[in-house]
Design a protein around this nucleic acid. Structure first.
Lengths: 255, 255
DNA sequence: TAGTGGTCTAGACCACTGC
DNA sequence: CAGTGGTCTAGACCACTAA
């Protein structure tokens, strides 16, 4: 493959390098030639190479470190299967504490979650779901999750005070099966859920924690849980890098 | 707001323009100042402006036409609600021909679908789902969908020959409710479905049809349908621009 | 013809890494 | 210190649109 005149050179640089990554010329973990060398190879200037590599960065194919070079990422998408992940048996499998831990375990990955619990006034979008008067507080469980050592997900759960108190959800560790198991134990199980998936660029703080380029994308998932009385009992805002996750939803159909 | 030294200038250009688009300084449909004028306003070179605007393009916030300028997009996300879209009553609501038409109608949008039916050897990933011997043909229903005049979705459905023949699925128009209604009429209703959602950059041909920048993202959804005997009866590969769609999944839970 | 964005270059300066 | 990528500029040429 060589540079053609019709398609922008920086796109061709990206196309060729992407192809070489996919066919194994540059294996996961290996380092690409430096930009000056690539410029020489393709007969273009360094800014053109830089722009081409930027495309691969934005796709999550490569990882760049200052002074180091450009390395090919190991991509192992974590399967997130709904509603399996909310079944009590799955959440508690292998003694896992919640769905994310069980998912990581299912593909042989270690996992780790930092939890921070506090009482806060929720964002307007969340307050609206609960029809909460302005300024009222909720319990927020803020979780930062790692798959192995890779930051893989942010999740902020908002729970009405009364429910959090009944289910004892203001401690960091909610025990086997996590939050939903405790709500069920409290006699108020979740009976219905919905998730709305959008895709956007990460906020700078999100990008910093998730070790992402700002040009990459995240799934922004808003999940709402309802109990048998059709009252919302929990809303979680998830942020997941798109290149690390694969979302599967399954459902029966009555035809 | 003005240019600060710490954050890359082109990012700040994007931040400021994004903010002004969101707060209404530049309303949907309006045109941004030309790049030379923006360069003057921010005191940076034109390539820096161009790089900043490229970020907004990749986010789907603006639309660029050669010789015209940069215009702010009207964004009206089409809600895609599962499993509602597969309920026969919804698919046939307002006489709609299938789920996409009903969804567009639900937000007051006209819709239009071009259908092309043929027999082809399916992609390997699809053949694998059916455990189909190599080289065997399936019926492919290729649909190109428009919301109003905006190209909004590509969908290729693959159906085993025997099922397509029984349900009369080799004509372009499958009648009220679409493919699934015909399968049900044929006595072989779909009883279970799954969708796997991934995000990627569009192929050049996809970008051309969907009127997208290559730097934008698409949802690539693989849907599989099974009948009561747990045999796969249909697989569809969907491609949807992320900035035009919002995916919602709902499900009951047994606690 | 004038104005728009698309792209490329050569050179530069910077921050960061590892030796 | 040398090597890496991050970024910016001034100027240039091109393709396209509208008048």
């Amino acid at each position: 493959m060589s540079i053609q005149p019709t398609r922008a050179e920086y796109r061709q640089v990206a196309d060729i390098l992407r192809h070489e990554i996919e066919d194994g010329t540059y294996a996961p973990g290996s380092t690409l030639p430096s930009e000056p060398r690539l410029a020489e190879r393709f007969g273009v200037s360094r800014p053109t190479i830089n722009k081409g590599v930027a495309i691969l960065r934005s796709e999550g194919l490569v990882h760049v470190e200052r002074g180091q070079g450009v390395t090919v990422r190991h991509i192992r998408a974590i399967p997130r299967v709904v509603p399996r992940r909310f079944e009590r048996g799955f959440r508690e499998s292998n003694g896992a504490r919640g769905a994310f831990a069980a998912e990581c375990a299912s593909v042989g990955l270690d996992s780790h979650t930092d939890v921070e619990v506090s009482r806060v006034v929720p964002p307007a979008a969340v307050a609206a779901i609960f029809a909460l008067p302005g300024g009222m507080q909720m319990v927020r469980r803020r979780r930062r999750m790692y798959a192995g050592t890779t930051p893989a997900q942010l999740a902020d759960s908002y729970i009405p005070l009364r429910i959090a108190e009944g289910a004892d959800l203001e401690t960091a560790d909610t025990g086997p099966g996590g939050t939903f198991s405790r709500m069920a134990d409290d006699g108020n199980p979740v009976t219905r859920m919905a998730e709305t998936v959008r895709v956007r660029t990460p906020e700078p703080e999100e990008a910093a924690f998730l070790d992402m380029e700002e040009e990459q994308r995240v799934y922004a998932i808003t999940r709402t849980s309802w109990d048998a009385t059709r009252a919302a009992v929990e809303v979680t805002l998830h942020v997941l890098p798109t290149h690390l996750h694969e979302l599967t939803y399954e459902w029966p159909l009555d035809g």
